[in-house]
């Protein structure tokens, strides 16, 4: 799929994404047009028992656009990759679902987000999850490792979605599942290029 954006515009999108998520790492409040934090978690139907004891700052940091776990259950013992894990909410929910025999890797582009996720992990004392810095287009995960790849509001930001999806497929075992929430166009974008660049990272 062509993005219809020039090299300069693509560079701008990349810069703006980094800039925005550095700010989001500090606090997502007021930076999105939809409910974030606990309001978002509740509205999307995450079972309360999965997150009730999570640190307040972790709940506040939630800015997912859907609930990937509503698509199918993770099984105890599953290995899971969370692409674009942010402050770690979904990865830590997944860690709880896969249990002591499972393993979760959360990957995020922004070092600030990875550091936050690690802080929240330490507070919860979870040992079956690792948080790594990395790109969706080059996941630091071996071939055919995961039973499930989850993701929440991330692939829309990728400037090379085909490559990012091939990576998700590569790290899955044969028969493994991709469970993802993301934003999708429900009406055509404006023709105006400046508006398109801005809409990319909203």
């Amino acid at each position: 799929m062509t993005t219809g954006l020039s090299e300069d515009q693509r560079r701008l999108v990349r810069e703006k994404i980094r800039e925005k998520y550095q700010q989001v790492a500090a606090s997502p409040a007021g930076r999105f047009k939809y409910p974030t934090g606990m309001a978002g978690i509740k509205a999307l139907g995450y079972a309360e028992g999965l997150w009730r004891d999570f640190p307040e700052a972790l709940l506040e940091s939630f800015c997912g656009v859907g609930n990937p776990f509503s698509l199918g259950d993770l099984r105890p013992g599953d290995k899971v990759v969370d692409v674009g894990c942010g402050a770690g909410f979904d990865a830590l929910v997944a860690t709880r679902l896969v249990g002591p025999g499972g393993e979760v890797v959360g990957i995020d582009l922004t070092p600030e987000m990875v550091a936050r996720a690690q802080t929240h992990q330490a507070a919860l004392g979870f040992t079956q999850v690792r948080f790594l810095e990395g790109e969706a287009e080059a996941l630091p995960v071996p071939d055919a490792w995961a039973d499930a790849v989850i993701s929440n509001g991330v692939f829309n930001l990728s400037l090379d979605k085909a490559k990012a999806l091939r990576e998700a497929c590569r790290v899955l075992k044969p028969g493994g599942r991709l469970l993802m929430a993301d934003m999708t166009l429900v009406q055509p974008l404006p023709e105006d290029q400046a508006a398109r660049v801005e809409n990319w990272y909203q």
Partner: peptide, 18 residues
Amino acid sequence: TGFKTSPYTEGALFMAEK
């Protein structure tokens, strides 16, 4: 999902299998 992220986009759920 009902989460409208911009005037042109809304949260959606996708699943697929390898």
